[in-house]
Design a protein around this nucleic acid. Sequence first.
DNA 1: GTGGTCTAGACCACG
DNA 2: GTGGTCTAGACCACC
Lengths: 131, 131, 131, 131
Amino acid sequence: MLLNIDPKSVTPLYEQVIQQIKELCARGVLSPNEKLPSVRELSAQMLINPNTVSKAYRELERQGVIVSIHGRGTFISEDFISEQTPAQREKIKNELKQLVIDSYYAGVQKETLFSWLEDFYEEIGGEDDES
Amino acid sequence: MLLNIDPKSVTPLYEQVIQQIKELCARGVLSPNEKLPSVRELSAQMLINPNTVSKAYRELERQGVIVSIHGRGTFISEDFISEQTPAQREKIKNELKQLVIDSYYAGVQKETLFSWLEDFYEEIGGEDDES
Amino acid sequence: MLLNIDPKSVTPLYEQVIQQIKELCARGVLSPNEKLPSVRELSAQMLINPNTVSKAYRELERQGVIVSIHGRGTFISEDFISEQTPAQREKIKNELKQLVIDSYYAGVQKETLFSWLEDFYEEIGGEDDES
Amino acid sequence: MLLNIDPKSVTPLYEQVIQQIKELCARGVLSPNEKLPSVRELSAQMLINPNTVSKAYRELERQGVIVSIHGRGTFISEDFISEQTPAQREKIKNELKQLVIDSYYAGVQKETLFSWLEDFYEEIGGEDDES
DNA sequence: GTGGTCTAGACCACG
DNA sequence: GTGGTCTAGACCACC
């Protein structure tokens, strides 16, 4: 498993790991019940500290994306769609609003934003009906 | 000028100030050349540290949203559309991708996202076709 | 003998085995002098590592719940009420205190807790007055 | 603020910190909006590592018991009763069942358990109607 | 072998 | 000053 980690980015390393694993799951590259590399393994591959990987895995487990079994390893969860919380909706809505404003200032057109959205959904699309 | 500041939020206070002023500009509530409250005025109103407001104003000026004229005060810029940087585009694109993935996990439908987007652009108005 | 083992639980597998066997004894499903399945039998049934079952049996024997007779097998003890240690009392008292606090935060009412307690003692039956 | 931390206990240090702060809140010793010692302060007092305190604080915040404000400090939350989750109820119920079984083996009488329960609720009791 | 916990000490962002 | 992040390296419980 290869992740693109940028130590110079402002986003924390563990956050980058979380995001990329979630992306790989959403795109179907990682399948339910698949085994993830161990904390030590991944940390060695990514050249980051085991604690950082561990923190990422812990948070992913809290979100229900993966399951850690002590002494066995870490696995992709079977059912990773969480129940919809109003707070989560609000959070996403706010982030989207901020994104629109930032796009406005960066000169990114409305149409561009919509086409990007379509692209991303195409990458994910229809993966949830195979088991 | 009234801003909604939440000290308990994870977003830094100065970031909240920046976002909200940019939003007020984008929605046309604040017009070009309009005078903003002084740093100490705004900090008194919002019950936050003057340093925090100062930092927000500094960043807004750096982005070209506002201009400070020494001894006169702070004003909304006339031309607040910055030139489009590839890096900015990339940044927005990445944030959008992450938003799609988070929506996926939060159970927010594609259609919901699109309708929210439409709503936000409606609030701003057809101002993205003037330069 | 059927146990409900969940490999994904945070409670260690051997702990789950211990708890469930103790429960079966307390509820009278397993009677004194009854023969338990062998380590390899149980591990095969439960799809877990023999070492795990072995560790559970060892701990159960240490607690006096079961007895292993070399070459014959493992049996439920006749007299499984241990003498009361102050340390044990303290431990249970502390766990109960923590349970009350957790209930408080989880919104579980005092009355609910009491009724659950009654239920559990009913399942065990009035066996706490024989020694 | 004084906590009783036992480095030799099997319960992790951060878990002990969590439990004791929750207890102090439930008993009304710590009031809403009260400021907690800083991570460094508490770690110095308790002779444990700042990271350990930090981990405890982070978990307490996730549970909604406290609120950390970056650069300001950590405070007791105003409304610390979470909504009741079926999973939480189930968890507490199971722990209670296990406690009953352990009491049975430790020779702790049903009446003793009930009287302890009453005691603990008396310590907490009636604290939630003052504001 | 696995993940979980803890320590020591560092740097950064925030107010 | 605050909390958040990261690294280095250690020990333990579990399987």
